[in-house]
């Protein structure tokens, strides 16, 4: 996809997220909106992923370690026609395949593994990547994490393992939106200097603007060329990106917009692509 189309797709995904959350009456807008470009560019320009055959053995894997932002994944899966767009309306309802956190037991195509308990995705990714190396397969593995999530110790066990096993088929993405539930990541429990930490753990580190589609696109391409080292994208983002009243506000981590707020947000997003 061209950058212009990716931008329009990102706007569509943002609107889906807001509509879904408004209908559900609960959920996590902030971190969903901050991840949009990172996920859109990945699915539309880089991942080997057949929406009609999501279990294809040559597919690339996407592990949503910060499972609470699943609306961004569900929307992208709908945009790819992997699932029906109407199903987005069932988010968080009893019986839905679109659970509040991705659920592997509900049979939603494109959900590889159940997540939502933070800190587990990178280890899972390391395991898949190691399996692909062992099988001599070319599949790549992508893991999306939050910046608050970096506080979990398991992340660093996995980070150590990934470089030890030279997993250059693994690409981690840290959505550095600067916020977690209780406030600024730097106030709650500082993770900086995060790029230096990954470097010290033996990773290829790419720092970028997580809303700049050109930078993102290049970063995913560069990661594929890097030999013998896993790559991490340290993506500077804005929590609640695209919605003026949500941007950089910790309180929008985990609450749904009202109908009016949703409509205002949608009009702002529409205006941004005019």
């Amino acid at each position: 996809m061209e950058l212009g189309d990716l931008k329009i797709m990102s706007a569509s995904v943002r609107k889906d997220i807001l509509k879904m959350l408004e209908l559900a009456g609960s959920g996590h807008p902030g971190g969903s909106l901050s991840s949009v470009e990172l996920v859109v560019d990945l699915y539309f320009n880089h991942m080997r992923f057949d929406p009609k055959n999501t279990k294809d053995k040559n597919r690339d894997y996407f592990i949503l370690s910060k499972g609470h932002v699943c609306p961004v994944l569900y929307s992208v899966l709908a945009q790819l026609e992997c699932i029906n767009g109407d199903e987005l309306c069932t988010l968080r309802q009893a019986g839905s395949r679109l659970q509040g956190h991705p659920a592997a037991d509900k049979g939603l195509p494109g959900v590889e593994v159940s997540t939502g308990s933070l800190g587990y995705g990178l280890s899972i990714g390391v395991g898949v990547a190691k399996a692909m190396k062992t099988l001599k397969q070319k599949n790549r593995v992508y893991v999306l994490m939050g910046d608050g999530e970096q506080q979990e110790g398991t992340i660093w066990e996995a980070a150590m393992a990934a470089s030890h096993f030279k997993l250059d088929n693994l690409c981690a993405i840290v959505d550095c939106n600067g916020l977690q539930i209780d406030g600024n990541v730097s106030d709650v429990l500082n993770i900086e200097p995060i790029a230096d930490k990954y470097k010290a753990f033996g990773w290829n580190v790419i720092s970028l603007d997580g809303h700049d589609l050109a930078q993102i696109d290049k970063a995913y391409s560069d990661a594929k060329l890097k030999k013998d080292k896993p790559t991490v994208l340290i993506a500077k983002t804005v929590k609640g990106k695209g919605v003026s009243f949500m941007e950089n506000i910790a309180d929008w981590h985990g609450k749904a917009p009202s109908k009016e707020q949703m409509l205002q947000a949608i009009s702002e997003i529409d205006a941004s692509i005019k």
Partner: peptide
């Protein structure tokens, strides 16, 4: 607390006794 301070209702203690309170971030084992 572990980044869920208000939702598990320990924010009152945090406010009253900040010197005897610590938010350890999303790090429950720690």
């Amino acid at each position: 607390g572990a980044d869920t301070v208000s939702s598990v209702a320990i924010n009152g203690f945090q406010k009253s006794f900040p010197e005897r309170f610590a938010n350890v971030g999303i790090a429950e084992s720690n």
